[in-house]
Simulated assay, not measured.
Amino acid sequence: MEKQTSKKKVRIYGAGGHSQVIKEVLLMNNYIVTETFDDKPEGVHYASKNVAIGARKDLSAFPHEGDPVIIAVGINSERAEIAQFLKSTYEKAIHESAIISNTSKIGEGTVVFAGAIIQPNTTIGKHVIINTGASVDHDNIIGDYAHISPKAALCGHVEVGEGSHVGVGAVVIPKVKIGKWCTIGAGTIVIKDIPDYATVVGNPGKIIKTKKPV
């Protein structure tokens, strides 16, 4: 008789389209999603079912203890905010087709989607999104709450600061440092260091604005 593998349990915070991708990865990895939360249950993705109210309305009433959580929110600043007020443990979600070096490190709450590649000696922070088909080469440092979008390519020794978003198909050449809470536009080619809070677009990438720190 075939031995039954016990399923792991996890909760999802966030019920938009991004959560659907995370849920599929979790189910593929033999998880059971026991609860789904969202701060606006009336506006969730049509495929999300039985969504409970999140913690913002009443932090003390939220069930912080229990199965580990993945924050399934695509906006970096919101994901960071939620991580600050939840008092829960966190799980990772890594697609079975992702290629990840044994010498790389991935922080809690981080998700790695289908076809992504993470090469040796790279460090990925907490609650990061490594999206579909993204390429993160050797010796990269990716800060907490960052998002590396589909098909983005980071060459060796690249640093991406906390909360920064590298857009779809962007390319970052070796040894470039991107500051915290930056936005790198889709298809941008980054060839030099980028300061904190900058928005960069084009080929070669140019700063078009700088956000003020909140």
Rank of each mutant, 00 (worst) to 15 (best):
K105R: 12
K105M: 09
K105E: 15
K105I: 08
K105P: 00
K105Q: 11
G107Q: 09
G107W: 10
E108G: 05
E108F: 06
G109S: 14
G109F: 11
T110I: 09
F113E: 15
A114T: 11
A116V: 02
A116D: 06
I117F: 10
I117H: 12
I117V: 15
I118F: 06
Q119V: 00
Q119T: 06
Q119L: 12
N121C: 07
T122F: 05
I124A: 11
G125T: 04
G125K: 07
K126M: 05
I129T: 07
T132V: 10
T132I: 12
A134F: 12
A134G: 03
S135W: 11
V136K: 08
V136M: 08
D137C: 05
H138G: 04
D139A: 02
I142A: 05
G143L: 09
D144H: 09
Y145A: 13
A146V: 02
A146L: 08
H147W: 02
H147N: 15
I148H: 01
P150C: 04
P150F: 02
K151C: 11
K151M: 14
K151N: 15
K151D: 05
A152W: 08
A153N: 15
A153D: 10
L154G: 05
G156P: 06
H157N: 14
V158I: 12
V158L: 04
V158P: 10
E159N: 10
E159S: 15
V160G: 02
V160F: 00
V160C: 01
G161A: 01
G163T: 10
G163M: 11
S164H: 03
S164A: 11
H165K: 12
H165G: 01
G167T: 10
G167F: 10
V168T: 15
A170C: 10
V171G: 14
V171H: 13
I173V: 15
P174Y: 05
K175T: 08
K175R: 13
V176N: 00
V176M: 00
K177F: 00
K177M: 04
K177N: 07
K177P: 09
K177Y: 00
I178R: 07
G179W: 01
G179L: 08
K180H: 12
W181Y: 11
W181L: 01
W181T: 04
C182I: 14
C182K: 06
C182N: 05
C182H: 12
C182M: 10
T183V: 13
T183R: 15
T183M: 15
I184C: 06
G185W: 11
G185D: 14
